[in-house]
Design a binder for these strands. Structure first.
Lengths: 174, 174
DNA sequence: GGCAAAAATATGCGAATTCATATTATTCAG
DNA sequence: CTGAATAATATGAATTCGCATATTTTTGCC
C-alpha cells in the first residue's frame, strides 16, 4: 500500500492549520461526534432530529426560531425537519395561544421516550470521552467552550480582521 | 416585539444540552467561526475553498484524499471543490509521477497570494478571540482540543454507548 | 507477464441544506 | 380602527453535499 516516500508525515503542529483555533474547534467537534452520530443514524434518526429531540427534552414546547438557533440550524431547515419528525410521530406542532404566528413544538410520548433514551446514551458516551481525558481537563474544556460560545453569540457586533478589497476571481459566474 | 411572558429565559446550564460536551464543541465552533466565514464569503470564496487554500498554504501538492481528511470533508465533495477552484484559477491538478492514480493539488500564484492573505487575516482574527479570553485560557483550550481530536481520529475502534434495539419509527419510507 | 485485489479519484444521482420570498399574524402610529 | 411595519413560519427553487459505484492505476501472487 504505502510505499516509503508516501509517508509524508503531516505534522499538524508545523503549519498554520494545526494550531489554528477555529480549525481545532471544528476538527475536535467533528472527531468527537462521529461515533455518536453514527449511533443516532442507526436508530433511524438524522443528526438534526436528534438535536431537536435533545433540545425538546430539556424544554418542551419551544418555538421554531428559538429551537433553530439552539440547535445551530436554519429556520427553514428546521421547519422541514419538524415536518419529518411529525410524520414519524415524534413531535407535534401547536400554535401558540397568545400569538398565533408562533408554532410551538411538543414531544409526543414516543418522542419523549426516544429522546430520554438517547440523552441517557449520550451522557454515557460523554462519560467515556471524559474518562479518556486527564482529570479536570473536561471541566476546563467545557468552561472554555462556554466562554467562547458566550463571547460570539449572534449580534455581538464583532467584525473580523480588517478587510481589504474584495477580490473577484470567478472565471465564470458562480 | 417581545412581550413579558415571552422572555422564556433559556438557561443553558439548566438542562442536558447546555452542559453536553458534544454540543459545546459544535456550538463554540459554530459561534467562533461565523464572523470569519462571512468574511471568507465576502472574498468570493466558499468556506470549504478557504479550508483547502489554508491546507495547501501549509503544504502544497497534497493528495486529494489526504486533503479531504484534513479539511474535514468527503473525498467526492473535495473533487468537486477542486474543480471549482481550478476553474477560478486558484489551484491546479497534477498527477503524481510515481503513482498516477494520485492527483496532487497545487496552488497557482493567485491561489498562493489569496491563501497567504486569508491566513494572515485568520491569524489576526484568532488573536482577537484569544484576547477576549483569560490569559492562558486559549492555550489550555487548544491543548484540550488537540487531545480530543487525537483520541477520536478515524479508526480508534471506539464504539458508542451500549446500543439497544434499533427502533423503526418511520410512518412512511424516508 | 497476467490476473485478482486494492488504492485513488471521478461521476451520477438522490438527499440535505440554504436562499429568497410568500403567507399569516401582531404591533403600533395616527 | 385602519394601514404600514415587523415578526414567525412555510414554501419552492437552487445549491451543496454524501453515498454508491465506475474508472484508472498499481500491487502482489502464481
Amino acid at each position: 500500500m504505502a510505499k516509503d516516500e508516501d509517508r509524508i508525515e503531516i505534522d499538524r503542529n508545523a503549519g498554520f492549520v494545526g494550531d489554528y483555533l477555529l480549525y481545532l474547534l471544528a476538527a475536535a467537534s467533528d472527531a468527537a461526534s462521529t461515533d455518536f452520530h453514527a449511533h443516532v443514524r442507526e436508530q433511524g434518526l438524522r443528526v438534526p432530529e436528534w438535536r431537536i429531540l435533545a433540545c425538546l427534552s430539556d424544554e418542551d414546547g419551544q418555538m421554531v426560531t428559538q429551537l433553530a438557533q439552539l440547535a445551530l440550524m436554519e429556520q427553514s431547515h428546521l421547519t422541514k425537519i419538524i415536518d419529518h419528525m411529525a410524520s414519524k410521530g415524534l413531535v407535534k406542532r401547536r400554535s401558540d395561544e397568545r400569538d398565533r404566528r408562533r408554532v410551538r413544538v411538543f414531544l409526543t410520548a414516543a418522542g419523549r421516550a426516544l429522546g430520554a433514551r438517547l440523552v441517557d446514551e449520550a451522557q454515557a458516551h460523554e462519560e467515556e470521552i471524559i474518562a479518556r481525558l486527564r482529570p479536570g481537563e473536561a471541566a476546563l474544556l467545557k468552561n472554555a467552550l462556554k466562554h467562547v460560545h458566550a463571547l460570539y453569540r449572534a449580534g455581538s457586533g464583532i467584525t473580523p480582521a480588517p478587510v481589504r478589497e474584495p477580490v473577484k476571481l470567478e472565471t465564470r459566474p458562480t
